[in-house]
Amino acid sequence: MRDHSATVLDVANLKTVFNTRDGEVHAVNGVSFYLKPGELLGIVGESGSGKSVTMMSLLKLLPMPPAEIREGQIEFDGRDLRNVSDDDLRRIRGGEIGFVFQDPMTSLNPVFTVGFQLVEPLRLHMGLSKAEARKRAAELLELVGIPDAASRLKDYPHQFSGGMRQRVMIAIALACDPKVLIADEPTTALDVTIQAQILELVKELRQKLGMAIIWITHDLGVIAEIADRVAVMYAGQIVEHAEVKELFANPQHPYTRALLETLPRMGEARAARLPSIDGQPPNLDHAPTHCEFAPRCKHAFTRCRKENPKRFEVNPAHDVACFLAQSGGSTDA
């Protein structure tokens, strides 16, 4: 099972709540996961399932208040991230943990050159001199496949295309050799041909640099392509977690199964009708008291409406939060 000595990031029972005027929003409800050095963990879920908030909570990137981390342990490289000082946290952000955001159009500052934005973390976190930092910045742009890197340092973000901007974002996140890279829907805003370029780039960079990556997406196709392990999130909880091949071959949670079924496949004959998941995701105005997927679940039985299932181990590489899977298909509980 879990070997704590070999993890670079270990999160246990994380709970994040937003205090809004209309009451509390329980965005993250007891999320636990770990990350080993060099592996790529994919996090899948629909919008509002809490995948981004989970990652932002790790580095306190959320405005607090309204956000509040209510419970949980976050251990990064032997340190407890919930109790480090603000100065230490600032060193970790962008230094030891890199972040790539979804929208390359808005996450670069339009009034500074790309070179300036790349040099900034290098000078701050690694204490390089101006000349060294510029040299390293050019290397980084080259690493992410931007042609004519040295001269493009002087360009502003608007002079780059969407795919190129995302490459710049990746270069910035990689600038200080992070141990962990968190990529929040990095290819969602891009076209498929550009997405394919970025996926190739990430595969290549992993081989070269060997950092651990958390890749957040709603696209199971992307996950199948690059992830080692996958966690599926629904309503602020991880409902299923497994190695990638195991998850696609042997999905246990009805939500995961439905997600896989709703995907039209390119290589197969056309289905008469797409299987769909009826209903809507829950609004998260209270902490979960029952299985949050039960109202949309075809297999829900009495226990699902009374109790919130805990994650249960199907085999050492696979766990799932579902009573049906736990009871082996019997619904008499």
């Binding site: 295309s161 997405q195 394919a196 196709g221 199948a224 392509e225 091949k245 995907l263 496949r265 390119m266």
Partner: peptide, 26 residues
């Protein structure tokens, strides 16, 4: 051909076996 080959296939068992045409540039 390039466009269709760029679509990620939601099947990790096949992930390495599909020939992908990566277009250069924008």
């Amino acid at each position: 051909q390039a466009l269709l080959s760029a679509v990620p296939n939601p099947d990790p068992a096949q992930a390495g076996h599909i020939e992908r045409i990566i277009l250069e540039g924008d």
